[in-house]
Design a binder for these strands. Structure first.
Length: 181
DNA sequence: GCCACCGGTGGC
DNA sequence: GCCACCGGTGGC
């Protein structure tokens, strides 16, 4: 059933609707509330709620909840209260961004994959030297915490339980004097 | 028990 | 001081 007052929202995937409801009474009479409705009809009252539901499928960083439009100017007014890694798409973002990209030097020659110490190895599906590089680079980029890698051999067996999300997908390693040289 | 609606407030 | 966000509840 089509509800009146719900309009299409072009900034969101097809089927998403927006509704603005004016408050009729009370101290806040005249103010309005904005709601969004998923294609399935679920109601959303805030941008965080929307973001949680949409995950990485839609980039809401420039999405203005009140107007329902993408506002590029919002980009630097980006909030970040990083609470825990599970809710923080930041690392994944950088890792994706770096995937398939290569560094180049001034002569614009692509620098092939850096050689990494043997002690540093990726874990998990799709482990390759490139994804390992991205993972480590991303970890270096997005935090100041030391990088120790995944701690337990158990992560190989059941990452669902043992994966340490604050560390890149690489095995725990020890840096030797030789590596530094 | 649900939900439309307004209140309260933390963060800016 | 404003307002995005979410708590709480009256009315059903």
């Amino acid at each position: 059933m089509e509800k009146p007052g719900r309009t299409d929202c072009p900034a969101l995937p097809p089927g998403w609707k927006k509704e603005e409801v004016i408050r009729k009474s009370g101290l806040s009479a005249g103010k309005s509330d904005v709601y969004y409705f998923s294609p399935s009809g679920k109601k959303f009252r805030s941008k965080p709620q929307l973001a949680r539901y949409l995950g990485n499928s839609v980039d809401l960083s420039s999405f203005d909840f009140r107007t329902g439009k993408m506002m590029p100017s919002k980009l630097q007014k980006n909030k970040q209260k990083l609470r825990n890694d599970a809710l923080n798409p930041n690392k994944l973002f950088w890792e994706k961004r770096l995937q398939g990209l290569s560094a180049s030097d001034v002569s614009e020659e692509i620098i092939k994959c850096m050689e990494l110490p043997k002690g540093l190895q990726g874990v998990g599906p799709g482990a390759s030297t490139e994804s390992l590089l991205s993972a480590v680079a991303s970890a270096l980029h997005s935090g100041s915490a030391p990088i120790t890698g995944q701690n337990s051999a158990a992560v190989e067996k059941n990452p669902g339980i043992w994966l340490n999300t604050s560390q890149p997908l690489c095995r725990a390693f020890v840096v030797t004097d030789d590596d530094i040289r």
